[in-house]
Structures are given as C-alpha cells and as structure tokens.
Simulated assay, not measured.
Amino acid sequence: MSYAAVAKDPCRIESDSEDEKRGQIPTPIITRRTIPKTVTSLSCPKTPDWDAASNRPQATRTQSPIQTLTSSNKNERGELASRISSSSSSSSSTRLNNAHEPIVPALTTPEPSSTLSATANTSNFDPIALLQNNLMKFINTVIPQDYSSFVQCTLRRDKDGLQGGLFPTFYLHAERPVDGKKCFLLAARKVAKVKRQSEYLITTDVATLSEKSAGEDYVGKLRGNNVTGTEYTLYDHGLSPNKVPNGKISNTREGLRRELLAIVYNTNILGFKGPRQMNIMIPKLGHDIQPAKNEPTILEQWRDRRFSYLTQLRNKAPSYNEDTKNYVLKFTGNRVAQPSVKNFQIVLENDNHEEEVVMQFGRVNEDIFTCDFRYPLTAIQAFGIALSSFDSRLARE
C-alpha cells in the first residue's frame, strides 16, 4: 500500500479490506453499553477507569524513538515527513468522518531512547537465555519492571489451506536484538465453535495444533465471551470449573484453570466512533485468579469496580493528523512498516498519571506483525491480546 494513496483516499484501507471481508462474521447490532457499572458500596479503584476516546492533555515526558516509514522514493518520503511533522487531535466530528482509516506510524527522525523509568536498563534479566533454557517458564514469567527494553517478537499469520482464511494459524517468535535471530515461542489455531464464539488454542508445539485441545503441549486458550466479539478471556491449561465436581476443589485449587487476562473492546458499530478502543485487565503480580463456580471472574470484578487484584491497561488513543487525514501512532524503533486498522499500542498509567507504552503491535507486511511487550505482561498475555485483534467483528470495527 503506497502512502501517497493513503493521503489521497484516507477512507480506503487497502492493506486490510480484503482480509476483513474474508474473516469477518456478521453480528447483530448491540446497543447495550460495555462500560463497568458503578457500585457505590465499594471503594474507588486506585487505577481510574479510562476513556479511550478522551483528548485530555497528557503529562509532558521524553518520547521514545518512533517508527520511520519506508519508501522507495526518497523525495516522496521527505515530502511526506514535512507534511506530518505536526500532529493535532481531531474533533469528534472529524473522527466520525474518518472512522475507517488505518492507523499510520508517525514519520519523523528517531529520538534518543526512553524507558519505563528514568534510569537506564540495569536488569540482569535475559529473555532469550530464559526461553532457550525453559520455554514454559518464560511464557508465564512477567517481564521484570527494571528490564525497561521491549522483548521484541514477530507474529506470523498462516492462511494457507482449505480453511486457512476463516481458521488461520498464528506463530509467535522472539527476536534476538543483536542479530535478529528468531526463537519460537507459541503457536495458536482458531477453531470453530457451535455458539459462534471465537476460540484460539495456544500451544508450544506446532505439530500438535491439529490434535484435539492442541495436544499435550497445550498451554492455554483465548475465548470470546459473546458473539459480537467485544469480550475475551485468556485461560491457562487448567480445568474449567464446570468440569470439576462440586466439593472436589481443594484449598490450593490444584488443577483449576487460571484466568490470565480479560479484554473488552468498546462497542463501535461499523467504526463510527473512530479507531478501536479496548480495556485490558490482568491479575496483579503475585495474585492468581482461579474462579470456581459462582465466583467472580476477571470481567465480573472489572464491571463491579473491584480492582484489588487487577491491573488495568488500555490502548493508546491515536492522534489525528489534519494534513494527511490519518490517525497516527508513534512506535518505538523501526518495528512497524505499514498502515493498518490493527496497529495499536497498550499503555499503563503510572502513579503520576503518565502513560507508559507496555506493548506495541503493528503490521510489517500482509501476514507479518510486530508484537513487542514488557512489564507487566508475559509472553502468553501479549500473544492473547494480539490474537484478539484478528477476530474482526462489525460491532467493534
């Protein structure tokens, strides 16, 4: 997709249109709001609820190096850079008129690197060494907070085969920064469900993806909770509480599955509210959430504003550039190359109400995507968030 074409016809999404048509499942129009309800008997959470569409000013801080678009025509690239060097937030009417645009990586000169903290990365954590030594441990390990660099990963989508268009396979590889060498982490396969709710089986062995429940190397699943594709839960490989006989759950809850995260996309019929907006809830470090029957799930705790054991993340709202008529995000490093409606960044709000990017996901080409993450995420959590972005539904686009 040429960037000149984006500026000329901003409402046309060449890089995604055919992809969405093949994979999209028509859904009924749902008008029920998906924001959490207010429970006055409970204290307010330490982490506030965020409005992803909010244009409130953010605290000034040093920006990370940002994605530079590539172009075969250097003159065209320089001209485009000068055109979008200044970005401004769009008004609500402008967002409605340009709801179906892809999110474009901002084009500018990279700046000195910034980190989650003001100090340099002094951690002894070595993600490549850990995954090569113990893959299972690595995919469930929260990246240490003092490891300020991103764990750089590449996600590849495979749509080959008779049913590849509707039920593709996904592969996640970690990249070694020094030489770009890739190490396999996880694979996932989308499966058909009777109730039309999406489900992705996740495994550490590609060979077992054709087996029921992904075989012995099955490590978890991402399951859609409704037919509209706005709510998802990521589980580990444990047993469903519905399969555990009453009274058989011990105090340690051995064998009961853990909920690793929940994702809620704001209802956005046909994209009239602008780019996708999502909230992500993960268990706080040191807390396992293993609900038995009739016990609150992550989603239920979030709706009831019970944040004692939850950390809330959300996607960073892209800014709207009036010159190019595109939504723009600043990506760290030369990691995202093409505009796409799937491009996003996940942010964590710190105690100073500053946004810190903890995950970035963006298109490299038709079926290759960047999937970088850091504290407070694990590899399987980042993979689950990325998988949910491929499950295109009319209710959230």
Rank of each mutant, 00 (worst) to 15 (best):
G274N: 07
I249R: 08
W50D: 14
M281K: 04
N352G: 01
Q24S: 09
R303W: 07
V219A: 02
N97R: 14
I35N: 12
R22L: 14
C183N: 02
A207W: 02
D126F: 00
V341H: 05
K273Q: 12
Q301L: 15
T34M: 12
V151I: 10
E355K: 13
N121A: 04
S250N: 07
K330A: 11
P105W: 04
K325M: 04
P318I: 12
S90P: 07
A52C: 14
S92V: 15
G220N: 02
A174T: 05
P245H: 01
Q338C: 08
V219K: 03
N133S: 10
K221I: 00
T203Q: 01
T31Q: 06
C153M: 03
G215R: 06
A382W: 00
L69D: 07
L387C: 06
S250W: 01
S113L: 12
Y147S: 02
K248Q: 10
T233V: 14
I29T: 07
N350S: 08
T38S: 06
K273Y: 07
L261K: 05
G255N: 07
S148M: 02
A188H: 00
N140P: 00
L69I: 15
F383A: 06
S43N: 06
N242F: 04
D16R: 09
E79R: 15
L209G: 03
N97T: 10
I139A: 05
Q132H: 04
T119I: 04
R157V: 13
D236N: 11
K190M: 13
V336S: 05
P241E: 04
H287D: 06
G23F: 10
E20N: 06
G161D: 10
E18S: 11
R374L: 04
N268I: 11
L96H: 09
P376A: 13
L155Y: 01
N55R: 11
A214I: 10
I282G: 02
T31V: 13
Q277C: 14
F167W: 03
T27D: 10
L107D: 08
Q152H: 09
T204D: 02
I13G: 04
V357L: 09
P28L: 08
F373R: 08
T208I: 01
Q132C: 09
P245W: 02
T370M: 12
C183Y: 06
R189N: 03
N133Y: 02
S117L: 05
S198K: 05
I143V: 15
I13K: 03
P168N: 03
L42A: 12
R306D: 15
K74Q: 12
R363I: 03
L329V: 03
